[in-house]
Simulated scan of single mutants.
Amino acid sequence: MEEQKYKYIRKGDGTVCRLIRIGTRKSELARIQTKSVAEKLKELHPDISLEIVAMSTIGDKILDTALSKIGEKSLFTKELETALEKNMVDLVVHSLKDLPTTLPPGFTIAAVLKRENPHDAVVLHPKHVGKTLDTLPEKSVIGTSSLRRAAQLKRRFPHLEFKDIRGNLNTRLKKLDEKEDFAAIILAAAGLKRMGWENRISQILEPGDCMYAVGQGALAVEVRAKDTDLLEMLSVLNDTETVLRCISERAFLRHLEGGCSVPVAVHTLVKDSQLYLTGAVYSLDGSESLKDTMQTSIAASDKSSEEGDQQEEHVGVTALKVCSVSQANAERLGVELASLLLSKGAKEILTVARQLNDAR
Rank of each mutant, 00 (worst) to 15 (best):
K5S: 12
G12Y: 13
G14M: 13
I20A: 03
I20R: 03
T24Y: 00
E28R: 10
L29N: 02
T34C: 03
L44P: 07
H45L: 08
P46T: 06
M55H: 02
I58G: 00
D60I: 05
I62Y: 07
K69T: 01
E72P: 00
E85C: 05
E85S: 12
N87P: 01
V92S: 02
F107D: 08
F107T: 11
T108H: 03
A110I: 03
A111R: 03
N117Y: 05
A121P: 09
H125R: 12
P126I: 11
P126V: 12
P126F: 07
T135I: 08
K139E: 03
T144N: 09
F157A: 06
E161W: 10
F162N: 10
E180W: 02
D181T: 13
G191T: 05
M195E: 11
R200V: 06
I201D: 01
C210D: 14
M211D: 15
G217E: 04
G217P: 07
V221N: 00
A225N: 04
K226Q: 11
K226S: 08
L230F: 06
L231C: 01
E232F: 04
L244H: 10
F252D: 10
L256A: 07
L256K: 04
G258E: 01
V270A: 05
V270W: 04
L277V: 15
Y282C: 15
Y282N: 15
G286H: 12
G286Y: 10
G286A: 13
S289F: 13
M294E: 03
Q295M: 07
S297C: 10
S301F: 01
K303Y: 01
G308T: 06
G308C: 05
Q310A: 10
Q310Y: 07
H314N: 11
A319W: 06
L320I: 04
K321V: 06
S324Q: 11
S326R: 12
G334I: 14
V335H: 08
A346I: 09
K347Y: 05
I349Y: 08
T351D: 15
V352Y: 09
A353T: 08
D358L: 13
